[in-house]
Design a protein around this nucleic acid. Structure first.
Length: 154
DNA sequence: GTTGAGCGTT
C-alpha cells in the first residue's frame, strides 16, 4: 500500500481535511476491495497513536452497533501498533462503516478500513497439496520368496 | 529515542 504512506506524508501536517482530497480518495474506493464483506470484523489501519479504544469506538459508532473496538498495543513495549479492529453486529453495518470511514480522518490521520482476516482460518477452501507418500507399499510376497523347489538338498 | 507496514493478548 504505497498510497497510504504517500497520503500520510502529504496530510500529516495539516489538521483540517480539505474537500479536495476527497476526490483524490475516490480511486482508492475504486481500487479497494469493493465486493461485499463476509465478516462484520474490520481492520483499521493508519490510526494515530493518540487513538484509543474509546475514540475508535466513538468514531465508528454512528454507522452501526459496535460490539467491539480495539486498538492493538504491543504487549511487550506497551506502544500502540497503529492499527485496530472493530466488530459490528452485522456485515451491513460494517459495509456502511467501510464506505463512510475508509480514507477518512481520525485524530489527524487518514485511516483505512479493510475487512479483517480471520484469526483462525477455519475452512481451508482448498486442501493443501498433500503428497501421497506410499511408505507402506503392498508387500511383495513372491519377489524375495525363496524357491524351495530348488534347494541344495538335491 | 525516526517519523507508520501491517492483521490482535484470550
Amino acid at each position: 500500500m504505497a498510497y497510504a504512506s504517500a497520503f500520510r506524508r502529504v496530510l500529516s501536517g495539516s489538521s483540517t481535511p480539505s474537500p479536495i482530497f476527497r476526490s483524490q480518495f475516490a480511486w482508492i474506493r475504486h481500487n479497494s476491495t469493493l465486493p461485499t464483506l463476509t465478516s462484520p470484523k474490520l481492520f483499521i489501519s493508519g490510526i494515530s497513536k493518540n487513538t484509543t479504544d474509546e475514540s475508535l469506538f466513538n468514531a465508528f459508532a454512528p454507522y452501526g452497533r459496535l460490539l467491539d473496538a480495539k486498538v492493538i498495543m504491543d504487549r511487550m513495549s506497551g506502544k500502540p501498533k497503529g492499527f485496530g479492529f472493530i466488530t459490528y453486529e452485522t456485515v451491513e453495518e460494517a459495509e456502511k462503516a467501510r464506505e463512510e470511514m475508509n480514507a477518512k480522518y481520525l485524530d489527524g490521520w487518514v485511516i483505512f478500513v479493510d475487512p479483517a482476516r480471520p484469526r483462525e482460518p477455519p475452512p481451508p477452501p482448498r486442501q493443501p497439496p498433500q503428497q501421497d507418500l506410499h511408505l507402506n507399499p503392498k508387500p511383495t510376497e513372491s519377489l524375495f520368496a525363496p524357491n524351495r523347489t530348488l534347494g541344495w538338498s538335491g
